[in-house]
Structures are given as C-alpha cells and as structure tokens.
Amino acid sequence: MDINPILLLAAIMVASTPILLAAIGELVVERAGVLNLGVEGMMITGAVCGFIVAHSTGSATVGFIGAAVGGALVSTLFAVMVIFLMTNQVATGLALTLFGVGLAALMGQSYVAEGQIIVPKAPIPGLSEIPVLGPILFRHDLVVYLSVALVVLVWLFLTRSRAGLILRAIGENAEAAHALGHPVRLVRFLAVMFGGACAGLGGAYVSLVRVPQWIDNITAGAGWIALAIVVFASWRPGRLIIGAYLFGGVTALQLNIQATGLAIPVEYLSMSPYIATIIVLVALSAGRAPGSLGKPFHASS
C-alpha cells in the first residue's frame, strides 16, 4: 500500500474545509432553533459571488469577503420568510436551495472557464517545520486555519458568552426566552445570516481554491453533507471538526484506495459516513437536537 498518510491527512484538511465552514454556520443556526435546509443554495451562491468578486478585483481575499456577503444576503430571504412571515422552515429551506442553485448558474454564466486566482499557501513559521504534524496541519492557506479558528470561536461564543447563552436558550425554548425579554427574532435573524456567510465562504473555497474555477453546480451536494455533519456532531462544535474530517476523509480515502488498486467496492464506501451519522444519532440520543428546532415562533403578546 503506497498511500502516504501525511499527504492524505493534509489533503483531507483541504477537502473538508468547505463542508466544515458551511457546517459551523449551520450549527449556530440550528442552535438558535432554526433549521435551514438551504445550505447548498447558500454555498453555491457564495461560490459564484466569491469567484466573480475575486475576478473583478484580482484579489482572493476580497473574493472571500464577497462570498460571505453573498451567502449572507441570500440567507436573509430565508430569514425574513421564516422569522417574520412564519413560513415552514423545511419547505422554505428546500426552496432556497432550488433558488440559489439557479441564481448562481445565472450569475456565473459569463464566468465559466475563466482563469483562476491563486490563493497562496501560508505555512505558519516554525510550526510548519515540525515533522509529521507540520505538513499535515500548518502548511495550508489562510482559509483552512480560519475554518478551524471559527469553530473554536463558535465554541467559545456558545459556551462562554452571555450572547451565546441567550442564543442557546432561544434554541431550546423560544417562548420561554421571549418571556424573559430576549429578542428571539433578532437573534435568529443574525444567526441565519451568520450561517449564510459561513456557507458562502465554504462555497468560495470550492470555486477559488479546491477546484478552482466556476462551473454550474460546482458544490455538487456539499451543502447537504454539511447538514449531515451538524447532526453527526450532535450540535457540538468540537465534534463538528471530527465529523467534517471524517466525511471529507472518506471521500479522499476512497479515491486513494482506488489508486492503489485495492479491490474494495468503493461505491458502497461512500455511503458509510451517512450510516455512521445515523449510528451516532442513535448512540448519542441523549445529546438531542435543540428543543425548538424547526418550530415557528410567533410572539403572541
């Protein structure tokens, strides 16, 4: 077997970054009690916005900012409908995906097969020289570090800050939180926008780094995987990292296994993360979903 584990693990970090970014955003959204199934739609909107902006400005950094803004903007559509018009979250999320995929294809029409913008690698001085760990962890581009940092920040926010506490309280029981005077709708609105921005960043990582080019449907279902990861992680940021790298890892691993010529029915291997997610759900049935996840909230005064 000639799979180099160091290179494989490094590749997994890169392959997992888009889904990790999208998932950390969705995690916050769901902790606030909103189920947004439109992650795929927001991701692909981010992918096209990032590509267009990076192209017009020549800067990948501005491109990523544009992607976050694009993702957040399209998510406000969802937010307004779900939070203020009290539409069904499941149906609205699905509609958002349909809309986003179409919108992105429409916006990107004249950018197909345009040349790439180089996103430089940013090895961390010192750390990148550590044997084994250096090449795996510390020789990536900034977005990879950002994605991990974001997970840590979200964890700190949720567990250590008052605002995070309020957000979780709203997610557990919106009516009770409202009775205590917390701004349920505002918090949820901001959470959805944060989710949109993160999904946008994840999408842009696909179109600016991982592929990198713009093509219709470039995210190819990554948004749905992000949803799965949130569940897999049972809504905890720490487990989210494991989940993302596991999902990304299975994909990378099955390609590597094929290249070595081992006779493993790889097409079946690619469904293993989903089954693992279900098993985790069952095993951690105590670590349940936020109490008011998916339920509409109307402040009856």
Partner: peptide
C-alpha cells in the same frame, strides 16, 4: 429510531436519502 431512541426523524430520514442515492447509482452499474 424515533420511537425507541428518540432520534430526530428529520435528520435520519434525510441521511437515508443519501444512502438510497448511492445504492441506486451502484445498482445501475452493478
């Protein structure tokens, strides 16, 4: 799973969509 383990049916049923998609793809070439 919902009845016995209180798992969320939204998520389990969604996961099973992906499994079904993999299955039909594999069956169509196998």
């Amino acid at each position: 799973l919902k009845v016995y383990f209180r798992t969320n049916e939204i998520l389990v049923s969604l996961m099973l969509v992906y499994v079904a998609e993999v299955l039909i793809k594999a069956f169509s070439v196998g």
